[in-house]
Design a binder for these strands. Structure first.
Lengths: 159, 159
DNA sequence: CGTCATTTAGTTGTGCACAATTTAATTGTG
DNA sequence: CACAATTAAATTGTGCACAACTAAATGACG
């Protein structure tokens, strides 16, 4: 399992840097998206929500959160801002009054056309081959899975 | 999924997922650190600042920011919280009154002992071999470099 | 020397992430 | 049916990231 025979200092330094590298890369993406998304009037998290809606159509807040691993504490104010921007509509479900359905407005649907240009610019900015991106993505998802599993073990009460 | 067609949709989906995977991995690390750092009374960004100080000793805010790629807008309140927690001291430099030197208190120095346990737990949680972590880190740093360079081109006015 | 540009921190405002709590609706069980 | 447990959103509060701005000190240059 974790029996890798390595001195403490190496262990320490290495693991420090993987999370730091990850954090730095994530923030670098954030900066780039901020620039690219600016004339769409979207932040990066808002863009992710729009991607989910463009792909899946109307969804309850809960489902949007499952796609993005976000809870209502993050989504409620974010969706309110998207609603203020006339990109989405929110309405209580008739079948289950607890649920709030998020749907695209005409404006929100129309925005997709302009958003199509975004991914290409981002991908180009990485300078990575598609295969390499794919490979990196696979590793990252595996890492996330491992971390999630470990987090559950760290807090057995909440799992 | 083939690599032959490059319609916008494929392109879109792929690049969407690399940044999303990155974001997810970064947040998964955040969750794990939150748990592990809880009994040190540190958040993850605070932990990074402490790592810098433990490694380099007293530094002006500017230098801390360079190590972590953070500006005073983020660091000032963060350092104020660390000061409130009696982990660091801040004082104006005598040589350059613009500069504020951040230094460890006895308590801050002592905390290092307890922090030594942290990296091991994190590294173990990834379940990755060291070589694999190293490889991933290299790729991420390369990605960050490419994104930074691209960001500069996107905003030529600031470069 | 005086003036202006630069540098360093700090402040303000916006938005996201997340924990904890609240409210309301639904479901399960006796 | 009544009532406890569960579920979905929203709210509250804390902290981080970042842009834009301010204030104060320093440096450059005529």
């Amino acid at each position: 399992m974790t029996t890798t025979p390595v001195p403490d200092d190496d262990f320490l330094r290495l693991d420090q840097q993987i999370c730091f590298s990850l954090n730095a890369a994530s923030r670098a993406f954030g900066s780039l998206y901020r620039v690219v998304l600016k004339d769409l009037g979207l932040t990066y998290p808002q863009y992710l929500v729009m991607l989910v809606l463009w792909e899946h159509g109307d969804l309850p807040v809960k489902k949007v959160g499952e796609h993005l691993r976000l809870d209502s504490g993050t989504l409620s104010p974010l969706l309110k801002r998207l609603e203020t921007a006339s990109l989405v509509r929110r309405e209580r479900s008739a079948l289950d009054e607890r649920s709030v359905l998020v749907g695209l407005t005409g404006e929100g649907t129309a925005l997709r056309e302009r958003a199509l240009r975004v991914p290409r610019r981002i991908a180009a900015a990485t300078g990575f081959e598609l295969a390499e991106i794919e490979d990196l993505r696979t590793r990252l998802d595996r890492l996330t899975g491992a971390l999630d599993a470990a987090a559950l073990e760290e807090t057995p009460g909440s799992g």
